[in-house]
Nucleic acid binder design. Structure first.
Lengths: 129, 129
DNA sequence: CCTTGACCTTCCTGTGACTGGAACCCTCAT
DNA sequence: ATGAGGGTTCCAGTCACAGGAAGGTCAAGG
């Protein structure tokens, strides 16, 4: 399989797949013409990576998770640890964004949004006393 | 005022303040020795920027908001439009993160987290059929 | 045989909003 | 004179790619 086929099968852009090879997440073979040749295991890995990335894991987390995936003697505790750390990050981010949303939502509600210059949003940003 | 004083007054790192000058968000004066000299208005702008950034506005949004802030003939509708677009982005991000949190949360709950290799998290990432 | 178009390759640059660090200058107190 | 603690510029790195240029490869059609 060439990169285009793999791209449409996995839903990952070819650019991304090349990048993953660059950083050694996958190691496809090469044909005589220099084209990458992907085996089933490569496609499987790419699907794994796509799902892990969709859950927001960093590339380094993905590397760790893939190593655990391929290690038959792994302890599920190690996987869970990585996942929990990531979940904590997600929850922190959500809390930040919720705070922003609340503040911004109130300001927007208070703003007339007409052609006059008075604006609680700018007043707040300007440090309304 | 020198950059260090402004940094501690605004809570912004000196690096960030220099960067904001680089991209022309602020234009402090210069002393004969080459040091930046910040006026009250510069500090005020930096506080504005700090608050806008804390609400998650991009630098380009900040530029727009500052221009509106300084334009006495602005229409509050223009401000509100920028804010609402940003709010929509925040809410989209929150939705994404909530989905991740839910999926990841379920997987973590299902994982024993002991020294055995069986792991629903990896099974899911591997595409458990 | 030639061309066309769809693939593929590598390499370089840019993104956003900074952060870290090197190498150097200024000022004041000891 | 020296040292500490400011300041300055400039360059590189971050993260996970995306865009684009310049060129090689392959199958089909004329």
């Amino acid at each position: 399989m060439n990169i285009g086929d793999v791209a449409s099968q996995t839903g990952l852009p070819a650019k991304t797949i090349r990048y993953y090879e660059d950083i050694s997440l996958i190691k496809p073979l090469r044909d005589d013409n220099g084209y990458r040749r992907f085996r089933e295991q490569d496609v499987h890995k790419l699907n794994f990576l796509g799902r892990a990335r969709a859950l927001g894991f960093t590339i380094e987390d993905c590397r760790t998770l893939m190593a655990l995936y391929e290690d038959e003697t792994r302890a599920s505790a190690d996987v869970k640890k990585v996942a929990r750390a990531h979940l904590a990050q997600i929850e922190a981010k959500i809390a930040d964004l919720n705070a922003m949303r609340d503040t911004l939502g109130h300001l927007i509600d208070a703003c007339a949004g007409d052609d006059r210059p008075d604006c609680p949003i700018l007043q707040d940003l300007g440090g309304k006393p």
